[in-house]
Structure formats: structure tokens, C-alpha cells
């Protein structure tokens, strides 16, 4: 069981949350070229190792958070409020 630290509620079990995928993709401008949109909708880095990803505390505070997790060891090394993610 993953223990996910919600920045608002503290550590909560994985079953409280819904996964939201890669948290680094950025929505292109409305008039961006087709290729940029295809990239945004479909293409992912899918890294082996550290991954910044979105989770939704769906059975808790119902807020979104960004979690830093290793895709090989599953270790969680950080969690942030959206907009407060260090670069």
C-alpha cells in the first residue's frame, strides 16, 4: 500500500486517492499547432525513475496534488500543492 502525504490532510492510504497521470505536461496555447496538441493529449515521457504525477484526494479533501514518486522503487519523495511545485 502506498502511503501518500496529502499537503492538506497529511499521510493517507493510496485507496483514498485517484491517479491523474504525468503532472509535468503543460496545456498548449489555444492556437498552438496541431502537433503540440497531439503531443499534449497523447505523448508522455514515461520515465524509469523519478516521476512527478498528479493524484486526486478523491475520498478525502478532494483536492489535486503533485506527488514525486520513483516508478521503479515506488518510493515517494515529496508532495506539493499545485502551483507550489519546485522546479
Amino acid at each position: 500500500m502506498l502511503l501518500i502525504p496529502c499537503p492538506w490532510c497529511g499521510p493517507r492510504p493510496q485507496t483514498d486517492f485517484t491517479y491523474g497521470g504525468d503532472g509535468t505536461v503543460v496545456r498548449p496555447a489555444e492556437d498552438a499547432p496541431q502537433a503540440a496538441w497531439a503531443d499534449f493529449v497523447f505523448v508522455r515521457d514515461n520515465p524509469m525513475g523519478p516521476h512527478r504525477e498528479l493524484w486526486h484526494h478523491s475520498a478525502g479533501c478532494r483536492r489535486w496534488l503533485v506527488v514525486e514518486r520513483d516508478t521503479v522503487t515506488h518510493d515517494i519523495t515529496g508532495s506539493f500543492k499545485p502551483g507550489e511545485v519546485p522546479s
Binding site: M1, L2, Q14, T15, Y19, G21, D22, N46, M48, H51, E53, R69, T71, V72, T73, H74
Partner: peptide
Amino acid sequence: DFYNSYGQRGNAP
């Protein structure tokens, strides 16, 4: 398990 993984092992839920 519904999260990105290369770990070849999952979780109890």
C-alpha cells in the same frame, strides 16, 4: 494498480 510503474510488483489493494 493504476499508477506508472516499472517495478514488476504491485500492491495489496
